[in-house]
């Protein structure tokens, strides 16, 4: 256990939606500046794990600690104030709001959002600066994903939760998206990413978890998991 030093420590977590339990006894850990990927088949509970950490799914048992603070009972609107941002897989921008309004709500919890944070987002995603007054619903899938990340990064979070960032992107944009995530992580932000594209995610991350049927199956460095015979056979298609 390293709850003293880790950014996020999920311990023995049971979670789900009302009566429906999806996760049982899940452990996840993210150390400062670390890039952690969670992979596994459809329905493994990967997205539920993210939602449970952020407070959008019901935590039934276990504990979630963020930078030493117990956040197990906190709703999303409180979790974000602890210094963690979450980019959902779909519905991650407000389609009828403009790009500028979306970014403004990204910094909603700050009384006086520093202008340089917005500038930093534009530096990372220049296309957003060009389309400030357009409604987010008119952006392409890739641009919406950038806007969603921009909204999360405006807060300069300690930890960024990404749910399937490559989902729905054209194949040639997937690599670009992973490069951007690498860059965010190299800037010092810890990343916890759920990904369907398991091979690419494990290749990029520092450490990975394999989740199946709502339980931890394997844990290790990305390279070790990629090399593991069992993981390859069961989860990476040989």
């Amino acid at each position: 256990m390293s709850s003293d030093t880790s950014v996020l420590d999920v311990s023995h977590l049971d979670a789900g939606y009302g009566e429906l339990q999806v996760l049982s006894d899940v452990d996840l850990r993210v150390d400062p500046g670390e890039y952690v990927a969670v992979v596994g088949p459809n329905g493994a509970g990967k997205s539920t794990a993210m939602k449970a950490v952020f407070g959008l799914a019901d935590r039934l048992d276990g504990s979630i600690t963020f930078e030493g603070t117990d956040i197990t009972a906190l709703p999303p609107e409180a979790v974000i104030r602890e210094g963690m941002s979450y980019v959902p897989q779909s519905g991650n921008v407000f389609p009828s709001l403009t790009v500028a309004e979306n970014l403004r709500l990204g910094a909603y919890i700050l009384d006086d959002p520093p202008e340089e944070r917005r500038e930093a987002v534009f530096e990372r995603f220049p296309v957003l600066a060009e389309r400030l007054d357009e409604s987010a619903g008119t952006l392409s899938g890739g641009q919406q994903q950038m806007l969603a990340m921009g909204c999360a990064l405006v807060l300069d979070p300690e930890l960024l939760l990404l749910d399937e960032p490559s989902a729905g992107l054209a194949p040639d944009l997937v690599d670009e998206m992973f490069d951007r995530i690498d860059a965010i992580n190299e800037g010092g932000t810890a990343v916890l990413m759920v990904e369907q594209n398991a091979k690419e995610a494990l290749r990029r991350c520092d450490r990975g978890y394999v989740l199946a049927q709502g339980e931890n199956r394997y844990e290790g460095s990305g390279d070790d998991l990629l090399d593991d015979e069992e993981v390859r056979r069961q989860f990476l298609g040989g």
Binding site: F54, G55, L56, P75, P76, E77, I80, R81, Y86, P88, G91, N92, V93, F94, P95, S96, L97, E101, R104, L105, G106, Y108, I109, C151
Partner: peptide
């Protein structure tokens, strides 16, 4: 269109879960 609370109202009409993720009460 110009105030946080007004933009938050429109955001809530769009997507309540995402509004909470943005920290909106």
């Amino acid at each position: 269109t110009r105030t946080d609370v007004g933009i938050a109202m429109r955001a809530l009409a769009d997507d309540e879960d995402l509004a909470r993720v943005r920290g909106i009460d």
